[in-house]
Simulated assay, not measured.
Amino acid sequence: MIPLLPPLRVATPSDAAALADLVNFAGDGLPLHLWACMAENGQDPWAIGRARQAEKAEDGQIVVVDEGGGAIAVLMGYGIGTDPVPTDDMPAMFVPLQELENLAPESCYVNVLATYPDHRGKGHGTRLLGIAEEIARDEGLSRMSIIVADDNDGGRRLYERTGYREIAARDVVCDGWKTATKRWILMIKELDRAGDA
């Protein structure tokens, strides 16, 4: 992980509740739908989400914005390799997402970028996208990728404003998830070595 200065820091397992909230915001309720599908014997889906986020935080790869009262914004991502991931045995709702990821080999994929609603409009998303680019360069990657819902107008404007361009799209497979989203859109930003493309 690259060095971070306040209000940025690496998430810890104690951030699990905020991370679950933020992941669910980013996914427009899809994460909660998946956690509910995983729940057994009356188990609380949020408890599953918090446990999963606590486990992910242990890897030390999640960046949060914390102005002193806990995590208010989050960045999660990973590098996409060169080989496409097969979709043959994948649940149908994940196939279009994976197909789009497969179109962005050797990129730094921004998997989650979210801010609590009452902290939006303060530049946290732009700041975190900049950190994602620093991480990408540090890992030797020369482009960024992100998948955004077609009805996420604010997110699309942010990504376009910071240099991302639409590359491809796939239809959403709802499989029980209640959403207005119709299409997933893959956006990519090419990076240069010195700074923003």
Rank of each mutant, 00 (worst) to 15 (best):
I80E: 10
D150A: 07
G70V: 00
A194K: 14
E40F: 07
G163P: 14
V65D: 08
L129D: 11
S14H: 12
P7Y: 05
P13C: 01
G123K: 03
P3I: 11
E67A: 12
A132V: 00
A92I: 11
N152K: 08
I185P: 12
V23Y: 09
V65G: 08
A17T: 01
E160L: 04
A136D: 09
L30F: 08
V85S: 09
A11G: 00
D138K: 04
P96Q: 01
E101C: 00
G81W: 00
G154W: 03
L141I: 01
V173S: 03
G49E: 00
I62V: 11
E106N: 08
I80R: 06
D171M: 08
M1C: 10
T82S: 12
P45M: 07
D28V: 12
L34R: 04
M38C: 10
R193L: 14
H124C: 14
G163N: 07
A39G: 13
G140R: 03
A36F: 11
L5E: 12
W184M: 02
I2W: 03
W177G: 01
R52N: 15
V95A: 00
K122R: 15
L158F: 02
Y159K: 07
A18T: 06
R52S: 14
T115N: 02
A39S: 14
D44M: 11
G79R: 07
F94W: 05
C174F: 09
A20C: 08
Q53S: 09
L34T: 01
R156D: 00
I72Q: 07
I2M: 11
V172K: 02
R143N: 10
V110M: 12
W46H: 13
E40P: 13
T126F: 06
D118N: 14
I131F: 04
G195S: 15
D21H: 08
D66W: 02
E58H: 01
G140D: 01
G195T: 15
V110R: 06
P6D: 02
D138S: 10
R161P: 09
M76K: 13
M90P: 00
T179Y: 01
K182L: 11
G49Q: 01
T162K: 02
G154I: 07
G77R: 07
G154D: 05
P105W: 02
L100R: 03
G154S: 07
A136N: 04
A17D: 12
D66A: 04
L100K: 03
I48N: 00
N111G: 14
W35E: 06
Q61Y: 01
I131W: 03
E139W: 09
L97D: 06
G81Y: 00
P86N: 02
R120F: 02
M1W: 13
A18F: 06
G81N: 00
W46N: 10
I147Y: 05
I72T: 15
A16R: 01
S14R: 13
A36V: 08
A114K: 09
M90K: 10
C108L: 15
D150W: 03
D28K: 15
M38P: 12
M1L: 13
P91M: 04
L32Y: 13
L8T: 02
E106Y: 02
A114M: 04
G163H: 07
V74T: 08
G121Y: 00
A54Y: 03
R183G: 13
V95C: 01
